[in-house]
C-alpha cells in the first residue's frame, strides 16, 4: 500500500462497569461480529483498506481499521461519514448494506452473548476537521432505536453575522449566543477557545464571518460556526475617507465607471 498507514476508525466494544476480555468473546462470535462491523465500516467494498486488527485494551475489545489517509478519505466520503451521521441523528443509514450490518450488531448486543453493552465508532478528529465526517464518536447500545428518514442535505454556506453577544459559553462549549436585531431567537455560534482569546465581551456589538448549514427546503440555518471576527472601526467617517481616497485614485483613469461596468457585463 502506498502512502502513510493511518488509523481510519476504531470500533470499541464495551460493557459498563465490567471488563471485557478476549475469553468472553469466543472466536466464532468475534468473527461474525467482525464481519458485520467490517461491512458497516467499508460498505462491502474493501477499497484498499486492511482487515481490522483486534486488541483488548482497558476492559474493552477494540477493532482497529487501518488504511492510508487517501483511502480513509474515500471511505468516509463514499458513505461511512453519512452512515455515522445518520446514526448520530437517530436515523438508519440510507445504504442498505450498512443498515443490515448495523442491525446485526444491534442483535449481537441484544443477545448479550459476550456481555458487551455498547459498540462505539471512534473517528480520528482530523477527519472531522477535513469535513469528511461530522461526528467523531457514535455509540449504539442494545436500546438504540433508529428510524427511517433522511438527513438534511449538507449545504454549507458562509455569511456575515452582526449583533450583540448575550451569552458566553464555558470550558466545554466555548461558543457564544448572539442577539441579532429583528431576530426573535438568539443565534448560537460555535467557536474555539483560541478564537475567543482577547475577543469581544458580553453585550458589545460584533461583526463576524460565520459558516453555517443551510436547509434548502426551509431556509433555516444551523450549526453556525465562527470563521473570524471582523474589526469594527470606531470612526466610520475616518474609514470612509481612507476608502474614498484610495478608490478615487484607483478609478482615476476610468472617466465613467458605470459605463466601464456595463462594458464588462456585456463583454
Amino acid at each position: 500500500m502506498n502512502g502513510k498507514r493511518d488509523t481510519l476508525l476504531t470500533v470499541r466494544l464495551a460493557a459498563e462497569g465490567e471488563n471485557l476480555s478476549a475469553e468472553a468473546l469466543p472466536m466464532a462470535l468475534l468473527g461474525a461480529l467482525g464481519d458485520g462491523i467490517e461491512t458497516f465500516v467499508l460498505g462491502g467494498a474493501r477499497l484498499g483498506a486492511e482487515a481490522p486488527v483486534f486488541r483488548v485494551e482497558q476492559g474493552s475489545i477494540l477493532l482497529h481499521f487501518f488504511s492510508t489517509t487517501a483511502i480513509a478519505a474515500s471511505i468516509f466520503a463514499s458513505g461511512l461519514g453519512a452512515a455515522l451521521e445518520a446514526i448520530d441523528a437517530g436515523l438508519l443509514p440510507g445504504d442498505p448494506k450498512r443498515a443490515a450490518a448495523l442491525s446485526s450488531m444491534r442483535r449481537f448486543l441484544q443477545e448479550d452473548k459476550a456481555n458487551a453493552r455498547t459498540i462505539a465508532f471512534e473517528v480520528p478528529e482530523r477527519f472531522r476537521v477535513e469535513g469528511l465526517v461530522k461526528v467523531v464518536n457514535v455509540t449504539i447500545s442494545q436500546n438504540t432505536t433508529l428510524r427511517q428518514g433522511s438527513l438534511m442535505p449538507r449545504v454549507f454556506e458562509e455569511g456575515t453575522l452582526r449583533g450583540k453577544i448575550e451569552k458566553m459559553g464555558n470550558e466545554g462549549d466555548p461558543g457564544f449566543d448572539v442577539r441579532v436585531a429583528g431576530e426573535p431567537k438568539l443565534i448560537h455560534v460555535r467557536a474555539t477557545k483560541e478564537q475567543l482569546t482577547g475577543n469581544p465581551n458580553l453585550f458589545l456589538p460584533i461583526v463576524a464571518r460565520v459558516r453555517y448549514r443551510l436547509n434548502p427546503a426551509t431556509g433555516d440555518r444551523s450549526e453556525t460556526t465562527l470563521v473570524r471576527f471582523i474589526d469594527r472601526p470606531t470612526d466610520p467617517k475616518v474609514v470612509l475617507r481612507e476608502i474614498v481616497e484610495a478608490g478615487t485614485k484607483a478609478w482615476a483613469d476610468i472617466p465613467d465607471p458605470v459605463a466601464w461596468l456595463r462594458d464588462l457585463r456585456e463583454a
Binding site: 461583526v207 474609514v239 476608502i243
Partner: peptide, 20 residues
Amino acid sequence: KDDFPKQLFAYFDMEAFGLK
C-alpha cells in the same frame, strides 16, 4: 479594476453566491 476595499465589510455584509 482594483482590490475591493475590505474595510467596508465592517459595515456591509459580504455574502457568497450560494444555492438559493
